[in-house]
Design a protein around this nucleic acid. Structure first.
Lengths: 156, 156
DNA sequence: GATCTCCGTTCAGATTTCGAACTCAGGTTC
DNA sequence: GAACCTGAGTTCGAAATCTGAACGGAGATC
């Protein structure tokens, strides 16, 4: 399988990764969630080539994850903001952060703390079942084909 | 920043992505969570070059995400199983699946359903605060530097 | 002993990705 | 108005990565 065939796979992981599975894309999204919005800011923070920033931002805009909007005229300057679809990626980032915190924080503790505004506590994310509200682990889940599994292409 | 400097960043996203942020690694982990364990199985399902499968499996083993253990002698054959650290990645995969289900499932519906064994329902994952149990969205979170933020390397 | 399976390794060549320098348009400084 | 700055890209050669295909080897099967 080639990388650009991923999007056609009947698998939500593959389809998502076709958009965000790139080396730098998730790093850009991390910064977007931390509030960065400008081309220069992304480029400077990541210290990667401008062409890569350009390409990734364009892809994320094309996919509707970021929105490119002018924030001034003369000269026109644009900023990149998370759309609703982009904000839906928050659980992905949080899950990645939590794994990193747990396994790579070292002696010093996690490099960032996150406070839940609702209760004021520093927290980490817990995944629960949308139906019963109980925490879910790998062993509690049983996967099976769903309605979109066998997308048969018709020839007529 | 180069790709292999990611692991040194004082950021849990960067550190995690240094391990799992690769193009194919998350696809391999997806299959591992679906129960695949053998080299041939990963290679056949992904349809990618054997050398890449080798390399990724070795990296995941080196990082302690997968464990390589013999499942027969004469000839020795190994299988790759998720370790506890690997199982901790389940929330990441779930979050990615949920995003894909929500934004790329199309008319036919999601390609896979997941049932929570606890309550027997098909479900999706909801992230809640570890402290108060309320659902968490991007807007509810406030990030600030933590104890591991300024890892100053001593020269003595 | 020929062939098959499983699990890799190797290598040349194609493809992609990257970094550094360049462009460009407008604004600011003096 | 000349020199310089800033934000946002583009270009292009070099470097990394991926592919496909062949090879190896250790036992099993026929």
């Amino acid at each position: 399988m080639k990388w650009d065939e991923l999007a056609q796979e009947p698998c939500s992981v593959a389809r998502s990764l076709a958009v965000i599975g790139d080396r730098w894309t998730l790093m850009i999204l991390r910064d977007a969630f931390l509030g960065l919005r400008r081309f220069e800011a992304f480029q400077a923070r990541l210290g990667i080539s401008r062409s890569i920033v350009t390409e990734r931002l364009n892809l994320l805009v094309a996919e509707g994850v970021l929105e490119r909007r002018p924030y001034q005229d003369r000269p026109v300057r644009h900023e990149y903001r998370l759309t609703a679809k982009g904000l839906d990626l928050h659980p992905v980032i949080m899950a990645i952060v939590d794994w990193g915190d747990r396994h790579y924080a070292g002696e010093a503790g996690p490099p960032m703390l996150r406070r839940h505004k609702g209760c004021g506590c520093d927290f980490h994310a817990v995944q629960v079942c949308s139906e019963c509200g109980e925490p879910v682990t790998a062993r509690d889940v049983e996967a099976r084909p769903g309605p979109g599994a066998a997308t048969v292409r018709s020839f007529t």
